[in-house]
């Protein structure tokens, strides 16, 4: 009897594990992602993106089947290493023009919303 119960427990734990592995992105995860991404989403967008992002994640999950145990991540593709230059100031662009691109400008300052 105890073995039977233990067996059921084991199945329950396993199915919980498997369910988590194939679960789509949860509502909370999507909300969290939207905030991290600094994107305010409408309700329809939230539902749509939840489905679509889950599909995309399922698609890229195929990478998990590839053995990369002895492989180093590749960061640069043409073998270039750190490129150095002299630490000398160079003039660039029209300062006024650059400042003028800002939606809200005050003299030489660019205005933003309060942070606190």
């Amino acid at each position: 009897m105890t073995i039977y119960i233990l067996f059921l427990l084991l199945l329950a734990i396993l199915s919980e594990f498997c369910y988590n592995y194939t679960m789509s992105i949860t509502n909370e995860q999507l909300e969290h992602l939207a905030i991290l991404s600094r994107l305010e989403l409408k309700d329809e967008e939230k539902t749509q993106f939840q489905d679509q992002l889950s599909d995309i994640l399922d698609f890229v999950d195929q990478l998990q089947n590839i053995n990369t145990e002895t492989v180093e991540p590749m960061h640069h593709i043409t073998g270039l290493e750190t490129v150095w230059r002299e630490d000398v100031v160079q003039e660039f662009g029209d300062r006024e023009e650059l400042l003028d691109s800002a939606p809200e400008r005050q003299g030489d300052y660019i205005k933003t919303k309060p942070i606190f």
Binding site: L33, I35, E40, I56, P114
Partner: peptide
């Protein structure tokens, strides 16, 4: 009213769906 909601509303309003999807995918 504040910086965070300014960022979120600006990007939320003016960026398209595919861009948003890819930003979120990348963030994830």
């Amino acid at each position: 009213d504040d910086l965070l909601s300014f960022y979120m509303k600006t990007r939320g309003e003016y960026l398209g769906a595919e861009v948003k999807r890819r930003i979120m995918m990348g963030t994830y």
